[in-house]
Amino acid sequence: MTKFVLRRVLLMIPILLGVTLLIFILRAVTPGDPVDSLLSQNATPEQRAELREELGLNDPLVIQFFRYVKDVFTGDLGLSYSTRQPVLGEILGRFPYTLIICFGAVTIGLLLGLPLGVFSALKQYTWVDSTILVLSMLFAACPGFVLALVLITIFSVNLGWLPAVGLASNLGYILPMVTIGVSSLSRYTRITRSSFLEVIRQDYIRTARAKGQTEGKIIIRHAFRNAFIPVASSIGIQIGHQLGGALIVETVFGIPGIGKYIGDAITARNFPSVQGGVLFLAFVFTLINLLVDLSFVWINPRLKSSFVYESESREKRILRKGAREER
């Protein structure tokens, strides 16, 4: 297990290096001079040249890239062009908002999605089932910003219960959480439904019925516990989607999270912030995927082979297979 974890952690390094390179290339092809956005219109050419030198923009791109990588590994993501503050500090200050919203969204998605999925499976092929399925399809098809506008119209404009933008009070968290939560709800509902339908046909459910267990206990203790595994494994993927979708939802609701930070930095051509923000999100995303993979293996050790022996040579694999069959 230690070897497996180590391998997976080491695999993160080339991926993150690749991401750094990718972001760097994107920056290199971006038209426009960052000096233009930093200095006022009437700056002298000397001032401009001085600033270019100071930012290291005169060096060849390769040197700039290696300097950036070196800085990243020492935890220095550079200074934001717009505020002149360290990017890492700004990101860390904003990340909690995104994190709270994501976790709130997962909770909402699970709290609604699981019961709906179970209910829909129990009433398979009835009008209840089809209504739930149609609703979940509708939510799945609804882009985040459309849902956000609908929710703002209902709860902020018409009812006036919740603030439409900003985080003046903690109530401001509710609408963004619901927006993201509802869009992941449909996925949870559908996975729960199909996995529940599969589980409920298993022999151990029949055994439980045969020994006279009450229906409620069968559903909760026997069926639900086993049906939950595929749902749990999709949570990590959902969090990843939500981190990406955060940009849109945070922009709509004016939440000062990391998504809005990157969005604002893009409009302001503030490259260090864009690079740092995207890199940070990629890091978190990769870390979550790693944790998800590890938890898979922890739940079901048989899966280990599919992750560990990925890069093993073909001969070795055949040998191992042969050895197993002999046993």
Partner: peptide, 26 residues
């Protein structure tokens, strides 16, 4: 292995974020 690691690199960035960064650059 080569192609898939290359794809992993792209996949490490959330999809919407990647698309936005690219349009922002281009």
């Amino acid at each position: 292995n080569l192609i898939m690691r290359f794809m992993d690199m792209f996949q490490a960035i959330p999809q919407v974020m990647l698309a936005i960064s690219i349009t922002a650059a281009l």
